[in-house]
Amino acid sequence: MNFYSIRAIYKFEMARTWRTLMQSVASPVISTSLYFIVFGSAIGSRMVAIDGVSYGAFIIPGLIMMSLMTQSISNASFGIYMPTFSGTIYEVLSAPVSALEIVIGYVGAAATKSTILGLLILITARLFVDYQVQHPVMMLAFLVLTAVTFSMFGFIIGVWADTFEKLQIIPLMIITPLTFLGGSFYSIKMLPEFWQTVTLFNPVVYLISGFRWSFFGVADVHMGVSLGMTLVFLLVCMLAVWWIFKTGYKLKS
């Protein structure tokens, strides 16, 4: 392992975060606050409790997951897209670093950033609703695993995309619908049976369900299944990244 190289990439990426602090941290915090005000307080006050959890508290894990996924993807995809776009990638490609080290640097930084963001939203939520985290360690595990998985997914998108449009399209067209339909704002048990079955094909359901279980001890899907699925997604993304570097796909001609 080439520690100095990983640190150089990681530091460089984190520096980018601090430079764009407003954009990368403040705006998701503000937008989730708005969700809490509208869904949590205004609408939530008229909703019945789900599985004994007040609606305002119920949506917290879903909101955090939603931000975590979109931010992980956008951080990581931008992180690798920008150097390929500006040409500075030549330096990373010509450096004595392995694919693994490059990925740890870029994905690590993106995941760190979105994990910090998730925790910030968690703290912000406290201003609006009262909640308790029953399984804090599992909560952190889900948070970090999801951040890493989606940062890796973002990395893949960043390598694949050759226009800014492509960079935006997957988060917009796939991730946002999947999170909305993945039980961020409702329990999938509230759906008709047919749609419940359809929903089980949505990977995001497992992430949100597992994460919610770590808060309240109740879940749509068994927590073990959630954890298993989360690890499967991680593995799939890792294989894709490995393939990219093995073939030099889009990074090297």
Binding site: F12, P96, V97
Partner: peptide
């Protein structure tokens, strides 16, 4: 990036 930061980055990147 700053000049100093950029050159330091390169050194670190090369291990």
């Amino acid at each position: 990036e700053s000049v100093w930061g950029s050159v330091s980055f390169s050194r670190g990147l090369f291990g």
